[in-house]
Design a protein around this nucleic acid. Structure first.
Lengths: 196, 196
DNA sequence: CTCCGATGTTCACGGTGTCCACATCTGCTA
DNA sequence: TAGCAGATGTGGACACCGTGAACATCGGAG
């Protein structure tokens, strides 16, 4: 127990979670993480090939946490569910800007296969599928609609975090976010068919 | 001319532009920028208090360049102009990812007053104003519409650069971007009034 | 009991931002 | 025209950072 830590990998991820919560990915440092765990810097290299890998593992841990908050939507109406999902995405970004930044700016090769499996994407897809079933969205416009929704909520979060909407208070940010979400949802139902 | 450079500040910004064009903000380094200009690292501190200030100046220079590309829109229809502006925004992000990252992720205090004057925002506002004049958008929904548009194009760019759409080829990215832009535009015209 | 692989340590290198004291040049003033 | 003051650039130093190589220690398999 003195020399061997037991589970250094997860301990380092935990430390990385603490560090990135305020400070974002830049605050995640091999040296600081190992320092917190009480271990020499190079010990990390037995479990992660480099700093980017530690950030990746941290991002994965964050996404799991996000999954739980995302799947709580017993709302029956597809439109309402869509809105809830989008609002939850924005809320997470504003509540945990550091973690949000880790998930989206941790240096990571874009692996489309894994992203498609992300819980947020699954929830979005399901809601859009219901919209198709309800006849409010053409089936062949579903994918485009998904990206449009994602783009809007993600971009809005970005505008609030690093962009021109950063100065606003949370209530106003929330109000404008709702308006933006309402806009896309209205737009995808109308324009889905004209995408070809 | 040997000892004094003449205009080190702009020379450093130029070097920073080169560096960030590929490599983004992370590639902008006091030491490398000064190295390229042929000057000692500390010379930079006579013109910029720190690295962040150099990045800020670089971001300002990039935005000026973006302004030119943005204001070329002799398109008469407000809807068409809106689409053009959004497409130009996304195109710039995809054509110059490094510079785009500098503008939006250079560590910078959010100064809302200056952002409102950004040329891209002005073009967007003008197009939306025309939409109001044409009766396609309630006047009190104009601001919300602006943020919704901006959020969508910005988020879409992000999805293409660092997100799940990164793997797609340019043509496909462009097609989906057009679909997303079409969606918001359709959405703002419909939902603008219900924002209150 | 012995040995081997997993894990952690130590030392070292090159890179970075930035502070401090010093050198040099330029322009204004007397 | 002489000289001084401020602007500008230099050199050295410090504290960080990521990371590679060699070494030490432990725990379990034979």
């Amino acid at each position: 127990m003195a020399y061997h830590h037991g589970d250094l990998a997860t301990a380092l991820v935990d430390a990385s979670l603490e560090l990135s919560r305020d400070g974002g990915p830049a605050a995640v440092t091999i040296r600081e993480a190992t320092r917190r765990v009480g271990v020499s810097p190079n010990a990390a290299y037995r479990h992660f090939p480099n700093r980017a890998a530690l950030l990746d593992a941290t991002a994965a841990a964050i996404q799991q946490g996000l999954a739980a908050a995302m799947t709580e939507d017993p709302d029956p109406s597809p439109i309402a569910r869509l809105h809830r999902i989008g609002a939850a995405y924005v809320a997470f970004a504003l509540d945990e800007p550091g973690w949000f930044a880790v998930v989206f700016f941790g240096i990571r090769p874009p692996d489309p296969a894994r992203v498609e499996l992300a819980p947020a994407f699954l929830a979005l897809s399901a809601a859009l599928e219901d919209l198709v079933a309800a006849g409010a969205l053409p089936a062949d416009g579903r994918d485009d609609a998904a990206w449009a929704c994602w783009a809007t909520v993600h971009g809005f979060a970005e505008l609030c975090l690093r962009g021109p909407l950063a100065g606003l208070d949370r209530a106003e940010q929330r109000r404008r976010g709702d308006a933006a979400i309402r806009a896309v949802i209205a737009g995808i139902a109308r324009t889905g068919g004209s995408a070809a």
